[in-house]
Simulated assay, not measured.
Amino acid sequence: MKKVYESASEALNGVLHEGMTIAAGGFGLCGIPELLIDAIVESGVKDLTVASNNCGVDGFGLGKLLDTKQIKKMMSSYVGENAEFMRQYLSGELELEFNPQGTLAERMRAGGCGIPGFYTKTGVGTVIAEGKEHKDFDGQTYILERGIFADLSIVKAWKADTTGNAVFRKTARNFNPPAAMCGKICIMEVEEIVEPGELDGDHIHLPGIYVHRLIQGNHEKRIEQRTTRTREDA
């Protein structure tokens, strides 16, 4: 089964459609699928629901899809770095489903494992719990959260072999594996593709069974918040 494609647009061919749900990996601007996002922008597909920890920043990452108004709804945890996100939400142009960060990751993981829902204490007594089923376990109240089953997963890995076994770097590992798991189709972009057997089996973070298509490319790797200080005189 061929998994390696020449470009992001080729890998997305025949996959995109209006109104689909996309799970996108990344943590801030770390480990985001830049090339696939750009290809989705170029495709012009609209009315997207996107599940992702955040929505990039203005003009970069998923923020590009906000600029073109291709996203109808975001399922996110953190949205504080994107002024266009705030503008669209406050004006009623964008739906927003807030999720605690751990809950969002677990919703993706649950979907990837075929689990339709789970109970958690996180969010009980807050707006997060509104409209959700409540249930008591051992005297404690929990709310029901639904697993996320996406039409497409787009993720970014550091290195993968041609069968899709993947290794992630640092915080890029936070959301990419669960996002990859919950899509009916998973497309992964990587910095380096190697032959099967070149990766240490004990170091693989995501088995290739979850990955359907692969591309290799160069990435900009922006820094979300750059903090510097003036060098002090010796």
Score class of each variant (00 low, 15 high):
residue 7 S to F: 01
residue 8 A to E: 03
residue 9 S to Y: 07
residue 9 S to M: 08
residue 11 A to K: 02
residue 12 L to S: 00
residue 12 L to W: 08
residue 14 G to K: 09
residue 15 V to C: 09
residue 19 G to H: 09
residue 19 G to T: 05
residue 20 M to D: 04
residue 21 T to A: 05
residue 28 G to V: 03
residue 34 E to C: 03
residue 34 E to M: 02
residue 35 L to W: 02
residue 38 D to H: 10
residue 40 I to T: 00
residue 44 G to N: 03
residue 45 V to F: 01
residue 51 A to T: 07
residue 51 A to N: 08
residue 53 N to T: 11
residue 54 N to P: 03
residue 55 C to W: 08
residue 59 G to W: 09
residue 64 K to T: 02
residue 66 L to T: 00
residue 70 Q to C: 01
residue 71 I to A: 00
residue 74 M to V: 15
residue 74 M to S: 10
residue 76 S to D: 03
residue 83 A to P: 00
residue 87 R to T: 13
residue 88 Q to D: 13
residue 89 Y to D: 02
residue 91 S to D: 14
residue 91 S to H: 09
residue 92 G to H: 05
residue 96 L to Y: 07
residue 100 P to R: 06
residue 101 Q to M: 12
residue 102 G to S: 15
residue 102 G to Y: 14
residue 103 T to A: 15
residue 103 T to C: 14
residue 108 M to H: 07
residue 111 G to Q: 03
residue 114 G to C: 11
residue 116 P to N: 13
residue 116 P to T: 12
residue 117 G to Q: 09
residue 118 F to N: 03
residue 121 K to W: 08
residue 122 T to H: 09
residue 126 T to H: 11
residue 128 I to F: 13
residue 130 E to D: 12
residue 131 G to H: 08
residue 133 E to L: 12
residue 138 D to G: 08
residue 147 G to V: 04
residue 147 G to Y: 04
residue 152 L to S: 03
residue 155 V to E: 01
residue 155 V to R: 02
residue 157 A to M: 00
residue 163 T to S: 12
residue 172 A to G: 15
residue 183 G to M: 04
residue 186 C to A: 13
residue 187 I to T: 02
residue 187 I to F: 02
residue 188 M to L: 14
residue 188 M to I: 01
residue 190 V to Q: 00
residue 193 I to P: 01
residue 200 D to V: 05
residue 204 I to T: 06
residue 205 H to E: 13
residue 205 H to P: 10
residue 206 L to T: 09
residue 206 L to Y: 09
residue 209 I to S: 15
residue 212 H to G: 07
residue 217 G to L: 01
residue 219 H to M: 09
residue 219 H to E: 05
residue 219 H to P: 06
residue 228 T to N: 11
residue 229 R to N: 12
residue 229 R to M: 13
residue 229 R to E: 13
residue 231 R to H: 10
residue 232 E to A: 14
residue 234 A to G: 09
